[in-house]
Each structure stands twice: as C-alpha cells, then as structure tokens.
Nucleic acid binder design. Structure first.
Length: 907
RNA sequence: GGGGAUUUAGCUCAGUUGGCUAGAGCGUACGAUUCACAUUCGUAAGGUCACAGGUUCAAGCCCUGUAAUCCCCACCA
C-alpha cells in the first residue's frame, strides 16, 4: 500500500513541484505547423500542436511577499495554463518580478532613515546601486511562494522589470514617440508629494473628504474692497488675479479693477472667468496659477504669471521676509494672524472638501509647477478606443469595455517623470551651454549610464528623473513574449491578460495603448479582471483592521490545492467578494476525499491482481482513452458495463457504470465550457459534485458489489486529469502513487468522452430514486435505528431483482426478498416500482400522517401543472417540447398520487 | 456632478439565450458508525428571489421607477 490514510499535502508538495520543474514540462514548446495528424494516428503532441496559449504574470514586487490577491491571481492564471496544457496547447506562462519603483523606494528610504541617513547625501547613481543591492538581498521569497502555490510558469523566462531587454524596449518606444512628436517637456502643475519629493500621475493620488475652513479675505482697492473665499490663505502670495463669474451681476462694475494683494504691495486685476461659481462663498475667487490645478487653467486662459511660492520641500519661497522658509502650515497661521490684525479677515466657516493625499504616506499633495516629460495621449487613446470598439479585445466582465472607452475619452496627457532614483533613467540629455543656440535643448540618447555626454562638441547632462513604472509596465506583454520588429513572436498577442480590476486604468489601459502603438496589434485577446478578496464579512482587508489573511499560512495549514480550490469558489469576474478559511477547509476535504477514493481503487486493483490476476484477462482495450469516442446513441457499443470474465463475482450488469460514464462526460463538457467562459467557480463546483456526490457516494458504492477494475481506473484517471488544473498537487501525488499510471499528470492528455449505454444510465436514476426514498422513509418512520430493523420486499420487478445487491448495499437494509402473496408494509411510491418496506401495520398507521402530507404536496404540484395546461395561450404559444413535458408531468404526478392513495387505503 | 456594480436560505455565493417545482458550500437539527475517508455517511428544516409597477402563455432573469450597500472617475476657491 502506497497511500497513507489521509492526504498530508505538506509531505508531497515541494517534491512534486521540484520534479515538475526539473522535467521541463512548464517550458513552452516550439509551436509547429500541423503535419497530417490523421494518417498514422500519431499521438505526438508536439507535432500536432499548432495552438499556443500564452499568459503573463502581473509581476509581483521582487522584494515583497505574496498577499491574498496574488494567491487569487495565481489560482486563476495557473488553472488556465494547466488546462490548456492538458488540452495540448503549447503553453507559456511567463513569470515576472517588479522593481516596483515607488513602492520599493519608499521601503528603502525608510530603511535609510532608520540608519540615520537621507537620500540627499547620495548621488542618483549611488542610490540606484544601493537599492539594487537591497532588492537583491530580499529577492527570492516571492518566487518560492509562487512555487508553493503551484504556478506552472516557465522559470527560465522570468522577466525582471529592470532587465536589459525591458530597458531597451522602453527606450526604443520612447525614441519612437520622441520622433513622432508624442513626447513633450512641459511646465505644468503636477501632483507633488513634499515628503517623497516626487511627482505622481493623477491616478496615484487619493482624494479624501475632510473638514476644512473657508476664510473670507478682503482684497482692497481705492474706494472699495472685494471679499474672496479661500481654504488656502497661505498661497495668496502667489495670486495673479481675482476671478468672478462673467454672469455675476454683483461684480460687473469691478471687472478690470486692480486690487492690492494683502500683506504685499502687489496689485492684481479682477477678471471674469467661468471657473468662479457665484453660489460658492462670496463668488469671488483668488487665482494662484502655480499652486492649483483649476487656477493653472484660468491662468492659461488669461495669460497670468505663474508665481511659485511653495518650494519642493514644502516651505515658502518668494514671499515677504517674515514668511520666507516657513512650512505651509506655519505660514497659514501667520498669514491669518496678520490678516486679522490688519482687519482684512472677514469671516470663516467650516466646509467639507476633498483633499489630495499621497497614496503611500498620506501627506497632502501639493500641486507644484514643474518641468516634466509628458506623453500626448490623444493618438494613443484613439488607437485603443478603435481596437476596443471593434471588439479586438474581449472583457470579463463585459461591462469593463465601455468603462475603459469612457476612460480613454477623458484621458489627460500622461506625466511620465518621477523624481526617484529607483527606476529606469529617462534617456534624455539637456544642453548645458546655452550659447550653442543652433543645437536643440534636449537630445535623446540611450547612454544613461553616463551623467554627461558630448555631441558635435556640445555638452549635455542627463535628466535626473526616472520613468513612471507604468510606462515600462505598459510594455509587459511585448517584452515577456520576446516580441521584436523583425521576428514578432508566436506568443504575441497573449491569449489572456489576467489581473486585478483595480489596475484596469493604470495598467491594462496603458498596455493596450502601448501594444497597439509599438506592434500594431492588441497585446492580448481577452482580459479577465478579478475583484478584491475581502475578509469573511465582506470588509476590505487591511493591516489596521487586523483582518489580513496571509495565503502562505493557509497553504501551510491546508495545502496549496485546498487554498486554490477555496479561493476560486464563489468568485466571479470583477467582483469584490468575501473569502474565509471555511472555503479552504472545504477544498482540503475534497482533496482528502479524492485521496481516499484513489486509495480504495488502488486497493481494489491490488486485490484483484493478487487473487484473480484479472489484469491479464480484462478487456482493457475498451477503456484506452486514446480510442474512446462519443457514446453511441443506440448503445450498440456498451463499454461502461462490459462484463468481466473469469470471475464469478464480477459477472454483473451494473447500470451505475453507464450512469457514471454519462455523468463524468457531462462534467468534463461542463468544465470545458466553463473554462472557455472563464467561469472558474462553476468548473470547480461541478467537479466537486461529480467527484463527491456522484462518483464516491453512488458509483463507488456500487463497485463495492460489482467491481469493474478497468472502468475504475479509467474513470479515476478522467476525474484526476479534469481536476488537475485546479488542484495540481494532490492529483499529481495520486497519479505518481497509482500503480498503473505513467509520466506526469501535469503533462497528460485531456480526457476523451467515455462510452456508455444511455438507457442503462437513465435506468440507474430509478435505482437512485428507490434508494433515496427508502433512506428517507426509514428516517421518517418512528423509532431509531430503523435501517437495521426493516427489510425490503419486491414483487415481480426486474429492475429491483437485477440490482438487488446494489440496492441492499446502498440502503443498508438487512434483507431484500420477493413478496409472496398480497402486498404488505409500506410502498416505496416515488420510483413507481413494486417495492415495499417490510414494516408492521402499527408502524404503517403511525406513518399515515406523513403520507397524507405527501399526497397534499404532490397534489399542489399537480394543480400547478394542470393550471398551466388549462391556459390555452400556454398550449398554443409555448414550445411544443415544454407542453409535452408538462403533460408527462401531469401523468406522472397523477399516477404517483394514485399509488400514495392506494397505500393510504390499505391502512 | 459622471459612471459602474450589488441586493436570492442564518452566512458566502451560483442561477449562461426568460421555461424554476429557485440550487450549492458552510452553518443548524436529527440519525448512523469496525472492513477508502469523522477531513466520514444518511436524512431534514430553512427562500414574498430588496420594493413598486410593466411586458409576456411564462419573470429571479427583460423594461421603468424606488430604496439600501459598495466601488471608480472628476470637482469642491
């Protein structure tokens, strides 16, 4: 016996993974043109394979640990990959690791702080080298965790986001964009975090509603004043105008009037602009083009000067002496105090307003005037919109299609500069010698390892900034599949892009634009987006709430398969859904069930081999999967219940065999459909039910009476292979332990359909009905331990007669005997067979009430069916097969009621 | 302000082009127990499918409206 009595995943998983990895089955095969695959019936998969299946892993942070979202990602992606591998496709699941520019930088900077240093003590190149070492030391954890989760990816092809080929590709794109005029350097307001001292894309900023104060300040002029409302009095030093709405009657006469900026000697004009909302505050608003996004636009419309008054470290500059160098908070206090003293502060009120925060440290984002590199996104967005509107990419869930199109339509130019050292250097060099007027101010050059280059005798220095990580990430499908302009790649576009719905805009949207721009093709044919994994109460997981579930803990506790099965259950595309340990326990139980099923079948096989040497005489050829085909409707080739020779115990006609073949076929088809439609939870569900409720609880119980070893083997193999994509470890472990299987299940062939006799299969249903009703009736009878008390009687019923042993085993009744004479006891009415529970009249009397209730409930069902038939519109308009179904139903219910009534009369 | 979702059993969710007599897992109750598995087996209870209208022979599903919950985008001087 090779199997221990329960499945202990920890004992096998790492060895199994190591064996897979060493075997090379995770590496992609070279796809080839199909060569006449019918003539010789050749089974060589590589030769036949002309299909590719490619998928990339959204690269986890190279120096981080996997969280629950990664666990879901891997469960989804690896199930797909393994499924298509079993289907015979050349599969390529490409793993990745992310330098995670800003994330890692934040961690590193904290590390520096702990050591009592700051980033400003080092040059950009020194910092880059230091972070590289830091990451190298941390790296590897997450790769081990990916293996523990069973990710069947091609490790030789792991791509790191700072690999040379990635940087090369990014520079090539940047150069192309530069030459195409899609890149420009602009002085714009950017979201700036004074703590991290870097700019952010709009998407990286988090808005939060906060209580704030709105102050009214008087801006005076000769003979009058205008009251402006502001939440940011400290920025008044940068004011360039006061704006009022052109429609606002109150201020018509003031347009063009110059007012004196408080606390200064400067004069600014009152202008008309729609930005000013007459309903808000006093209807007059101060315009600070250098420190507010709206004001920046107003400034552009009216050609106002942009005066910077807040420096990059968050302190005041270009302001009167007494305010200079103060932080914004200090400055606000002082400004308010001074205004009050000068009697210019006219009121204040509390308001709710949204404030932008750094998504990492929570510091208030300061809109800052900076020169940055921007991508003009109009053309790129159009490429993407066109492709999506032409359905070149299919979305799961489907509603993301329009959401994405809307996003592209409102997309603003993309700031790709970041002021952090940890990232890909921007390959642009600035002219130092401004007297060389004929030369361009900026030139593109790949030599970013140099700080300074010389071209045509002119010196240029490298831009210190690095790329936004999303700029390089947007090339991910291109770089992972080794696509290039000359050779393309048979794996590009990817079959599917699987990632979190939360980065639809940040990543998916940009990959689509970039893929189309660089290759002319969409980067993937389908997109599957998963939602957030919430805690068991449907709340977001967070460290502060303490409800974070670590996937690796669950893997250790219950096994990788249990985790995968658990996290896939009850999950559908794009939805944020709850997750609890219970679902993992259910998965673990399934693995254990399968383990014990296999243990039983192996022991049956061993026993047969020893006692009867059946393996020599069994008509095994009938079950060779390679020769299996669709079942014949006429049942002419009935393989499921083929009798075994040379063994008196086995000369049976077990209809459960045909039935299980039918059910397994149905299950396999359903899994195929579900995988095509990305319905992972449904695929797992149907497998769960087939394996447990049908195979173990019914079929195997019949096999304890009549063994059909070849069929047991075939059906077990079929179920193992079909479950393998979702539970790779336990299926492989079993496969390796079974005495008759060869190779890796991970590289096995997807099962073909089993042959069976549909009539037998259907007849087995009535056995199931009999058994269920006997069980139910026994439970409902008064007293306990009824199972042992009462036998069954049958009258002239061939189905019961032929399946007596099976019924006996399934119901556990002590005896089944032919009824001699008049019927007695309690009739098992549902299945319409002549079968009775041999109970005394007293017991039957006590059952009377139950029987009456049953008649009533069936009567209700009958009434409902009849009511439908009484409706002439139904009979006329509903499809014929439904009407027939209803009529058959009526007959069935009527005869059931009759049988029940007869029973009642007998009492 | 713009957009997207969700609402079905105590909990978490299925329910695909309308055919439903609405399912599953967990939980609950009752019963079982040597011979694959207590990580087990059997049986059962549990639902006005959020609400109100409409379309249809037929609505959990389609249409209109309402309510609640959640998410995204933009903006809030």
């Amino acid at each position: 016996m090779r199997f221990s009595s329960s499945y202990e995943p920890g004992e096998y998983e790492s060895d199994i993974y190591a064996a897979w990895e060493a075997s090379g089955i995770f590496n992609p095969k070279v796809p080839t043109v199909p060569i006449d695959n019918n003539s010789d019936g050749s089974d060589d998969r590589v030769k036949k394979s002309n299909q590719t299946f490619s998928i990339v892993m959204p690269p986890p942070n190279a120096n981080g640990n996997l969280h629950i979202g990664h666990g879901l990602t891997i469960a989804l992606e690896d199930s797909l990959t393994r499924y298509y591998r079993l289907k015979g496709d050349s599969t390529w699941y490409i793993p990745g690791a992310d330098h995670a520019g800003f994330e890692t930088w934040v961690v590193y900077e904290r590390e520096l702080e702990k050591q009592g240093h700051t980033r400003f003590e080092y040059s950009r190149d020194e910092l880059y080298a230091r972070v590289w070492d830091f990451v190298a030391k941390q790296r590897g954890n997450m790769e081990l965790q990916l293996r523990a989760l069973g990710a069947s990816c091609s490790w030789d092809d792991l791509t790191f986001t700072l690999d040379e080929n990635v940087i090369d590709r990014v520079y090539t794109t940047f150069e192309k964009m530069w030459n195409d005029g899609l890149i420009y350097r602009g002085e714009k307001l950017v979201n700036y975090c004074p703590k991290h001292q870097t700019a952010f894309a709009d998407i990286e900023v988090e808005h939060q509603d906060e209580k704030g104060t709105l102050w009214d300040i008087a801006y005076q002029y000769d003979g009058g004043e205008i009251i402006v409302s502001t939440t940011r009095p400290e920025t008044l030093f940068g004011d360039a105008a006061v704006a009022v709405n052109p429609e606002d009657k109150r201020y018509q006469n003031l347009l063009g009037q110059k007012v004196k900026l408080p606390l200064t000697d400067r004069e600014i004009p009152i202008i008309a602009d729609e930005h000013a909302d007459p309903e808000f505050g006093t209807g007059a608003v101060k315009i600070t083009p250098a420190h507010d996004f709206d004001d920046f636009e107003v400034g552009e419309r009216h050609n106002l000067p942009r005066l910077q008054v807040i420096a990059e470290n968050g302190t005041m500059v270009n302001v009167p002496e007494e305010f200079n160098g103060l932080t914004t908070t200090e400055c606000r206090k002082k400004v308010l105090k001074t205004l009050k003293e000068q009697n210019l502060l006219r009121g204040e009120r509390k308001i709710d307003h949204a404030v932008a925060h750094c998504y990492k440290c929570g510091t208030t984002i300061e809109p800052m005037l900076k020169e940055q590199w921007f991508i003009d996104v109009k053309q790129l967005a159009k490429l993407a919109i066109d492709a999506i509107e032409q359905d070149k990419i299919k979305f799961h869930p489907a509603n993301k299609k329009n959401i994405l199109i809307n996003y592209y339509k409102g997309l603003k130019d993309w700031n790709i500069s970041r002021q952090i050292p940890w990232g890909i250097a921007i390959p642009m060099f600035r002219k130092v010698d401004l007297s060389a007027t004929d030369e361009p101010d900026w030139i593109f050059d790949r030599r970013t390892n140099l700080q300074e280059i010389e071209k045509a005798g002119v010196k240029y220095v490298r831009d210190e900034d690095t790329f936004d990580t999303w700029f390089s990430s947007s090339h991910w499908p291109i770089v992972c599949t080794d696509w290039d302009e000359n050779n393309f790649s048979p794996y590009y576009p990817l079959n599917v892009m699987e990632t979190g719905a939360d980065i639809l805009f940040a990543w998916v949207a940009r990959m689509i634009m970039m893929g189309l721009y660089v290759t002319g093709e969409v980067p993937f044919k389908e997109v599957y987006l998963h939602g957030l994994v919430l805690d068991e109460h449907g709340k977001k997981m967070s460290k502060s709430k303490g409800n974070v579930i670590n996937p690796m803990d669950l893997v250790t506790k219950y096994g990788s398969d249990a985790f995968r099965l658990g996290i896939l259950r009850g999950r559908s595309a794009g939805m944020n859904q709850a997750f609890s340990e219970n679902s993992v326990i259910a998965g673990r139980n399934l693995c254990n069930k399968l383990w014990n099923i296999s243990r039983l079948i192996q022991s049956m096989t061993d026993e047969t081999d020893i006692n009867f040497e059946v393996s020599e005489t069994v008509p095994r050829e009938g079950y060779d999967p390679s020769e299996m085909s669709e079942a014949h409707d006429d049942g002419s080739e009935r393989m499921g219940s083929k009798k075994l020779q040379n063994n008196i115990n086995y000369t049976s006609n077990n209809m459960g065999e045909d039935w299980i073949c039918r059910e397994i076929n149905e299950c396999v088809s359903q899994v195929e459909k579900d995988m095509k439609a990305y319905r992972f939870a449904e695929a797992v569900e149907v497998l769960y039910q087939t394996i447990w409720d049908k195979y173990a609880d019914w079929f195997l119980e019949t096999q304890k009476v009549y063994k059909n070893i070849p069929l047991l083997k075939t059906t077990l193999e079929t179920l193992l292979i079909t479950l393998h994509p979702f539970a790779p470890f336990v299926t492989e472990t079993i496969w390796q332990n079974l005495s008759w299987t060869e190779g890796f299940i991970a590289a096995a062939k997807w099962p073909s359909k089993l042959k069976f006799d549909p009539i037998s299969a259907e007849e087995f249903e009535s056995i199931r009905t009999i058994v269920s009703e006997v069980r139910g009736t026994l439970q409902a009878l008064p007293g306990t331990n009824n199972v042992k008390k009462y036998g069954l009687l049958y009258d002239n019923d061939s189905i019961v007669n032929e399946n007596m042993l099976i019924i006996k085993n399934l119901t556990k009744v002590p005896s089944i005997n032919s009824l001699n004479g008049n019927p007695r006891g309690l009739r098992i009415a549902l299945a319409n067979h002549e079968i009775y529970l041999d109970v005394s009249e007293d017991i039957v009397m006590e059952y009377k009430e139950t029987l009456t209730e049953k008649i009533l409930s069936v009567g209700k069902e009958l009434d409902a069916l009849n009511a439908r038939l009484m409706n002439p519109n139904y009979v006329d308009r509903a499809p014929a097969h439904l009407v027939k179904e209803t009529r058959d139903g009526v007959k069935e219910k009527e005869s059931l009621i009759n049988r029940l009534k007869q029973q009642l009369e007998l009492i």
